[in-house]
Design a protein around this nucleic acid. Structure first.
Length: 703
DNA sequence: CAGTGAGCGAGCTTCCGCTTGACTT
């Protein structure tokens, strides 16, 4: 009886179901639960003198899995490797085959011992047809792909296990970490912070006019009933001279565009006077109908971004919820970078759309999406519901399905179905309002002509933009009111979880399975902190990033991974030898390491604060430990005074005893707010909204 | 599924990527 090997128990279950239906129950399907053989954690385990030979071990937590695998291997002669079609999947297959005694390892060349009994099947879609087709023409293990994975693994190990100890010495903290992915993620945040500091904030004014058309009702963009008669437009030029200037900043990651006007506070008053005295006419009214297409279905990265902006979920939370939905069979696999939707789903979606919204909303031909990124590996489908049932999560009787699960399910459902809906048709109006003295105001608005997919994905937008513009060129308008707004130019924004994941994915840094863990890691290590929902580097994080960027500029660059991936593709296609690739990386790297090790200077990130040590009077300093920040006496080791670093919320007092409110954490690192006088006072709150309206300490409430 | 408060830190750490079940109530 053939033994089929896959990664995940869910995939195994699906296979069993399909095989049973096809009356092929003489297969046994076994799940490895991911990698089973890897480098040990407690040492480098790379032999640099022997072509980077790795010493793999069975992963401690997988011993049971491997015992079971070996037992099954003895019982079943024919082995069918059915792991994911990408690099990591091929590697899992390889190590499983090795443990079953079917691979001869002779570094750096490995070979398959018994090709008759070892087969590899590959498919991108788990359906009965794909499976039976694959079973009919099995292939062989792709050793070049395995080598690409090994090169990736070894390179990451070398980078991580060389750079980390360097940091331990450099910073005097033996728990620090560095790596190809995490250090670049950190640098992205650090460089942005510097760009923000460097940014010069400037004040400027914007002038908006509200115009009335006595004869006809004109509509204001985003109109409310009360102001329906008014048209709001922005002053943009005089005699062809624009007031607005646009600027583009080149940033570490991408660029930043911003605009300001040349209008200063001095000019505003006289401008207002002149504008109010003028008479106006609508000119250059243009209509332009454009199609708006639905966004692609969710990948891991897009789902994390969508859930963050829509519901404020952290990536960790989103992945946890998605995992639960996946395990209950409600959605497809949630760690994916693919836009592919199975043909079965696409056809069912068409039926669903026609039944739910009518034929006007469905497509004749299915719509597909191209991956933007060449770095995608597309081992899975896009994330989509498994059933065309909008209420599938709602109906679940599982008590562990919460409102959050249901919300995330809806997000996934709507987005996937929307991909197969007609595009929306939007009429864009742009027009100017010109005064006799040469002043020009400009405005634009949109009207939804046909809602298409927006009906499902953004009904509010449809509702707010359904009325046509009731103006035409030549209409005479009166300026009813002026609104002068003082603004400041804004620096590029800090990253949040969504924008960080977006840039990581764009640059191919990290994989769907690692985005959330990486974001957790740089916070747990105290390299970055969240200021509300935005990342700011700590002193420690900035020092680490600057040091590494200075000494290992190539690795800390955004295109390092992209170049590595290109090379790994060449290895997979047998155009490049993977040992040569490793050597080409490692030779200059070791040189840089040697130079860095010669510099014995130590970087100090400790920062003195105003507060004095109660024991000896020396200033206290903020220090970093693996458990977070703490305050310690600056005359350590002479004085060993320490105390916790507390984060007070300014301007809030405890409603029970008037004490200061501070941020605390539960044992499981969940954030909450509490009174400084704990345990005497037990006031606590989970959410900002609960403490938002608390009184300030100096201003106790009277009633 | 939720889950609400120590005191530690300054000797044996650290990588990336693939999986799920893992605490306790």
């Amino acid at each position: 009886m053939p033994l089929i090997i896959v990664e995940s128990p869910t995939k195994a279950r699906t296979f069993n179901r399909i095989l049973k239906i096809a009356n092929k129950d003489d297969y046994y399907v076994f799940a490895t639960m991911g990698h089973i053989r890897d480098l040990p954690g407690n040492e480098m385990a790379i032999d640099f003198k022997n072509k980077f030979k790795p010493s793999y071990q069975i992963i401690a937590k997988k011993k049971k899995v491997v015992t079971e695998l070996k037992k099954l291997g003895k019982e079943n002669k024919e082995i069918i490797l059915a792991t994911d079609p990408d690099r990591e999947g091929e590697s899992i297959a390889y190590h499983a085959a090795f443990l079953l005694g079917l691979i001869k390892e002779n570094w750096p060349e490995s070979s398959v011992k018994d090709g008759k009994n070892l087969k590899r099947i590959v498919f991108h879609e788990i359906t009965a047809r794909a499976l039976s087709e694959a079973l009919e023409k099995p292939e062989t293990l792709r050793l070049n792909l395995v080598n690409a994975q090994q090169a990736r693994r070894i390179l990451d190990r070398v980078v991580g296990y060389e750079l980390s100890p360097l940091l331990w010495k450099k910073m005097g903290k033996n728990w620090l970490s560095a790596g190809r992915v995490q250090s670049v993620a950190l640098r992205i945040i650090v460089e942005r912070e510097k760009e923000i500091r460097k940014f010069k904030v400037e004040n400027y004014f914007q002038i908006f006019g509200k115009f009335v058309n006595a004869k006809q009702k004109a509509r204001l963009p985003h109109a409310t009933p009360e102001v329906e008669k008014m048209v709001k437009a922005k002053l943009t030029s005089k005699n062809g001279e624009p007031y607005e200037q646009k600027f583009t900043l080149k940033l570490f990651a991408g660029e930043y565009q911003y605009a300001k006007t040349t209008i200063t506070s001095v000019q505003v008053k006289s401008l207002e006077k002149e504008l109010l005295a003028d008479t106006y006419e609508v000119v250059d009214l243009k209509e332009n109908i454009v199609s708006r297409f639905p966004p692609p279905p969710h990948t891991t990265s897009l789902l994390a971004q969508d859930a963050f902006y829509r519901y404020g979920y952290s990536s960790k939370m989103t992945m946890r919820l998605a995992q639960d939905l996946y395990e209950r069979g409600l959605i497809t696999y949630h760690r994916t970078d693919s836009f592919n939707l199975s043909t079965q789903f696409v056809f069912k979606a068409k039926d669903y759309i026609e039944k739910e919204f009518g034929k006007k909303y469905s497509l004749e031909k299915p719509r597909g999406y191209k991956t933007r990124s060449k770095l995608a590996q597309e081992a899975h489908e896009a994330i989509r519901p498994t059933k065309l049932d909008a209420k599938a999560a709602e109906k679940s009787e599982d008590k562990r399905i919460t409102i959050n699960h249901k919300r995330l399910y809806s997000l996934i459902f709507n987005r996937a179905v929307a991909t197969q809906m007609k595009e929306a048709s939007i009429k864009n109006f742009t027009f100017s309002i010109a005064g006799k003295k040469g002043y020009v105001f400009e405005s634009e608005l949109q009207q939804v002509v046909f809602d298409g997919f927006l009906r499902l994905l953004n009904p509010k937008f449809v509702e707010n933009n359904s009325v046509p513009l009731n103006l035409k060129s030549g209409d005479q308008l009166e300026l009813d009111e002026l609104e002068s707004l003082e603004s400041q130019t804004k620096p590029p924004p800090r990253y949040n979880e969504a924008s960080l994941i977006k840039i990581l994915e764009e640059k191919g840094i990290g994989r769907p399975s690692t985005y959330a863990p990486i974001i957790s890691l740089i916070q747990v290590k105290n390299y970055v902190e969240k200021d509300f929902r935005y990342f700011a580097p700590t002193k420690l994080g900035e020092a680490i990033s600057d040091y590494l960027a200075g000494s290992f500029a190539d690795i800390l660059n955004l295109d390092f991974t992209a170049k590595m991936e290109e090379n790994l593709d060449n290895v997979a296609e047998d155009k490049l030898n993977f040992i040569n690739l490793l050597e080409e990386f490692n030779t200059p790297f070791q040189k840089e390491l040697k130079e860095s090790k010669q510099d014995k200077s130590v970087i100090d990130v400790e920062e003195e604060i105003k507060e004095k040590c109660p024991r000896c009077g020396s200033p206290l300093t903020v220090r970093f430990s693996r458990f977070g920040k703490f305050l310690a006496c600056s005359s350590y080791p002479k004085c060993k005074f320490t105390k916790p670093f507390l984060r007070f919320i300014a301007g809030k007092a405890c409603p029970k005893d008037g004490g200061k409110i501070l941020v605390r954490f539960t044992k499981s690192r969940k954030k909450f707010y509490g009174c400084e006088n704990y345990p005497k006072c037990d006031y606590s709150a989970w959410k900002w909204s609960e403490i938002k309206n608390l009184q300030s300490p100096s201003n106790p409430s009277s009633p």
